[in-house]
């Protein structure tokens, strides 16, 4: 199994939106490699002919009727927000994306 290079961990951390210091990358990288080696064994038994199980209890077609339920009041919706303005959640500037 391929081992995780430091750059790989850095890329994964960026994808997961977790800032990491060089120290973090070193420490976590080492631990992750040990774990990855241990879990990679799943590929040994997962044959082509074995179907995947995503839901432990097989069920399907669970839907909701298209009937309106009460929403939260605006102040309740915003109650946990680190910052709000004009009834909206306020965030620092967004870069490099369309509106």
């Amino acid at each position: 199994m391929s081992s995780l290079e430091r750059a790989d961990v850095a890329r994964l951390a960026a994808l997961a939106r977790i800032d990491m210091t060089d120290e973090d990358l070193d420490r976590l990288g080492g631990q992750l490699n040990a774990i990855v080696d241990a879990v990679a064994t799943v590929a040994e038994v997962a044959g082509e002919d074995v179907p995947a199980t995503s839901h432990p209890i097989p069920m399907s077609n669970v839907h909701r009727e298209d009937v309106v339920r009460p929403s939260l009041a605006q102040d309740a919706a915003l109650s946990g927000a680190p910052e709000a303005e004009d009834g909206r959640f306020r965030v620092p500037q967004i870069l490099g994306e369309e509106a």
Binding site: V45, A46, V50, A52
Partner: peptide, 8 residues
């Protein structure tokens, strides 16, 4: 994917 097969 393989892990979900192990579940089976």
């Amino acid at each position: 994917g393989s892990a979900q097969k192990v579940r089976t």
